[in-house]
């Protein structure tokens, strides 16, 4: 089997995944990183969203054998010893989560958006996260949480 070397949350890993296994399988089952959730296993719900080389992907659709040299960031990779990432804190402050199952994917989508577009409009936020399903919140507070960070604390832009 092919050996794959990649980093996950800045830690190097060498894996030999069987060809049918996905990034989500490897994260959850081999690395114990269960923050990425399995909601549909078909790329339809976004609960397994992680950042792959800075771009958001449904990790259930990415084959692990194709990840040589990749840099993966999961929800466990946000924030640090000094505290939570600003967007994580904004989700708390804005009550942007209920059951919490979509939350890791939503936060990483928000991170991805703000990296490529630091000052999105509300419509752009809604459009960008529209592939990530949430059944609890009605999305309003999630959009608010992302906009609050996008506004840089000076109202939202």
């Amino acid at each position: 089997m092919k050996t794959v070397t990649l980093t996950v949350n800045n830690r190097p890993h060498t894996l030999t995944p069987s060809p049918e296994r996905t990034l989500l399988d490897v994260l959850r089952e081999d690395l114990g990183l269960t923050g990425a959730k399995r909601g549909c296993d078909a790329g339809e719900c976004g609960a397994c969203t992680v950042l792959l080389n800075g771009k958001p992907v449904n990790s259930c659709l990415v084959l692990a054998v194709e990840l040589s040299g990749a840099a993966v960031v999961t929800i466990e990779g946000l924030g640090g010893p000094d505290g939570l990432d600003r967007l994580q804190q904004s989700f708390i402050d804005n009550f942007a989560l209920q059951c919490g199952y979509c939350t890791p994917g939503m936060i990483l989508m928000g991170k991805a958006l703000l990296m490529q577009n630091p000052h999105p409009t509300e419509a752009e936020v809604k459009e960008f996260i529209s592939g990530n399903l949430c059944r609890c919140t009605g999305y309003e507070n999630i959009v608010k949480a992302i906009m609050a960070v996008a506004g840089g604390g000076e109202g939202n832009g």
Binding site: L78, G79, G100
Partner: peptide, 16 residues
């Protein structure tokens, strides 16, 4: 009051 489970849920620590 902020949610008691919020930090667990925004960090991926919340276990299902």
């Amino acid at each position: 009051v902020p949610r008691q489970d919020a930090v667990d849920k925004v960090t991926g620590a919340a276990q299902f």
